[in-house]
Design a binder for these strands. Structure first.
Length: 534
RNA sequence: GGAGCGUUGGUAAAGCGGUUAAUACACCUCCCUUUCACGGAGGAAUCACGGGUUCGAUUCCCGUACGCUCUACCA
């Protein structure tokens, strides 16, 4: 029996023999993600990448990234590089791609253009496709002419193609003449009538369609570029893709793809399909879009993206302060689980445990609160050194230069469980390095008394003389003095906290005092005492 | 309009013929902490509806409803 790792060339066609024991599923797993470089990389896109990656790596296979840039009108400068950057940040690096190279290139469809015509013409010869000369205007006319209440969107299908200007209605001579004079044309698939097309989806099981209900999709466009429908089949074949995952929105066009496989390469060579559930808007209905993010205040793209044409900008999960570990984990949990109560997974664990049959069928509404929880968990779990540099940069932006790394790490460690997103560290920890500008004296004033004022004046004196500036001594001194003044320590702790921190938050007060040191502690107490007098 | 896919607490979801229907997020209450957070305890679902099949259905089958996707020379 061939092992799954055995090179596919040894499994049959390479030796010119079809080995009985070497079936399709014994071939090396090869999956692909095929984005079109038209804008920011959406949450759903990253999740598709993730599932591809996890599946491939689980079986020791390859993850290929192919650029679907067949629509020249939608080319966006920088989008391709951006996609690679996102994958890099997520840690989902392709084995083969336009930048990583590989034996099945080129990995950009625009660079494979001549290939597609060949196959399209083969289909024409086989009678499974035909030339069509209808202009965009004529198509538009057809749609309005045949539009009825019952049929609001007429299709270019077996019923209507007889009314159109194509090789099926024009006659051989005329077609040849049109072709000879360079008349623009497209090649359309000729969908058969009343043929049941069925295939097994890895997530949904058996799905079937009636071929009569599908339209004669354009395979090759007038500019010579293939449409997605043709390109996906040819490239998946040529790149030896064994499993093809994509969003559920592709399900309705799957029958055309299955047919193309049947006509061109044989159903036995077709990859296993899996149509992933959609990620939906948090409230209401429909696919999650960038607009929802803007409206509800959360990111939708993996990383910041600015459209070079419109200048429109969108923030990404990365820039919002997500750790890649959390982002990936959250995405995996959106539609997949391992059947246990475990929710936090490393990439390695995901690779080990992932399986397609545990992917949920229904679409999931995106919950930003849950996404934040994953990030908080990862902040708590990871050593602070893992993200200290990033946080340091955020401090620098606020004008706080960190010089003492050891102190910085202790501080981060001390406040990490209070941080949900990376920028929270700035709020939670900057007072360790810079005296607070805003002091919430309103939280002190209502219960402020002359006795308390006196207490702090004496506390300053006592602290000035304290031999060892350390947590336990500071606390002991504080409590003894409170007792001497007959004030409950609790009534004094909050004021002290506000003096040191500026507000009602942060770790233990004496921990803070210990770290910021005698000089700063006393200065901050004095400063606030001054404010309270005024 | 048509086709396909889907439907378990507010959200994500486990369950794969017999369970007190897990768990997590969010929310509320309480404990811990004289801050905030962490941590701990508790609180919510007659599994969309109607028929079957079965001794027994959240689980299997068929309808209905609802939702989503697609219905471009875009992917």
């Amino acid at each position: 029996m061939c092992s799954p790792q055995l090179p596919s060339t040894l499994c049959g066609e390479g030796l010119g023999v079809r080995y009985y024991l070497c079936r399709m599923d014994a071939k090396k797993v090869r999956v692909r993600f095929a984005p079109s470089p038209t804008g920011g990389l959406h949450l759903g896109g990253v999740r598709t990448v993730l599932f591809n990656y996890l599946f491939a790596k689980h079986f020791g296979g390859d993850f290929i990234l192919r650029i679907e840039d067949t629509d020249q009108t939608r080319f966006v400068e920088g989008a391709e590089e951006y996609i690679f950057n996102c994958l890099e940040w997520c840690g989902l690096v392709p084995d083969e791609s336009a930048v990583h190279g590989g034996p099945y290139g080129p990995y950009r469809q625009s660079e494979r253009k001549p290939l597609y015509l060949e196959y399209a013409e083969q289909l024409v010869k086989q009678g499974h496709a035909y030339y069509a000369f209808d202009t965009p205007q004529e198509l538009e006319e057809m749609r309005t002419k045949f539009k009825t209440k019952e049929n609001p969107s007429p299709q270019y299908n077996h019923e209507l193609r007889g009314y159109m200007r194509n090789a099926l209605t024009l006659g051989e001579a005329e077609v040849a003449a049109l072709l000879a004079t360079g008349t623009p044309y497209v090649i359309r698939i000729k969908m058969p009538e009343h043929e049941e097309i069925r295939f097994t989806d890895m997530i949904r099981g058996e799905v079937s369609f009636d071929s009569s209900l599908s339209d004669d999709k354009v395979l090759l466009k007038a500019d010579g570029m293939p449409t997605y429908h043709l390109a996906v089949v040819i490239d998946d074949y040529l790149m030896k893709i064994t499993h093809a995952f994509r969003g559920e929105e592709w399900l309705p066009s799957a029958p055309a793809h299955v047919l193309l496989w049947k006509y061109l390469f044989g159903l036995e060579n077709m990859p296993q399909w899996a149509h992933l559930p959609l990620i939906l808007k948090p409230e209401g209905n429909g696919k999650l879009s960038k607009r929802d993010g803007d409206r509800l205040g959360f990111p939708v793209f993996a990383m910041d993206w600015t459209d070079p044409r419109t200048g429109e900008a969108a923030t990404g999960f990365k820039e919002r302060g997500f750790l890649p570990e959390a982002f990936i984990n959250m995405l995996a949990a959106l539609g997949w689980n391992d059947g246990t109560a475990q929710e936090i997974f490393t990439l390695d664990e995901l690779v080990e445990k992932f399986s397609m049959d545990r992917v949920h069928k229904g679409g999931a509404k995106f919950d930003f609160e849950k996404a934040k929880w994953f990030n908080q968990e990862w902040i708590k779990r990871l050593p602070v050194t893992h993200y200290a540099a990033k946080v340091k940069g955020m401090f620098a932006e606020k004008g706080i230069a960190i010089e003492d790394d050891a102190k910085f790490y202790t501080v981060l460690e001390m406040v990490k469980e209070r941080c949900i997103l990376l920028p929270d560290f700035v709020q939670q920890a900057s007072f360790f390095f810079l005296a607070p500008v805003e002091i919430d004296t309103n939280s002190i004033k209502p219960k402020w008394t002359a006795q308390k004022n006196q207490f702090f004046i004496e506390l300053i004196r006592a602290y000035e003389l304290i031999p060892y500036w350390q947590h336990d001594d500071l606390e002991k001194e504080f409590k003894e003095m409170a007792a001497a003044h007959q004030i409950k320590p609790g009534d004094l702790l909050l004021p002290l906290r506000i003096m040191l921190v500026g507000g009602k938050f942060g770790p233990g007060v004496f921990d803070i005092a210990t770290i910021i040191g005698k000089e700063d502690t006393l200065a901050r107490i004095k400063h606030t005492l001054g404010l309270l007098e005024a």
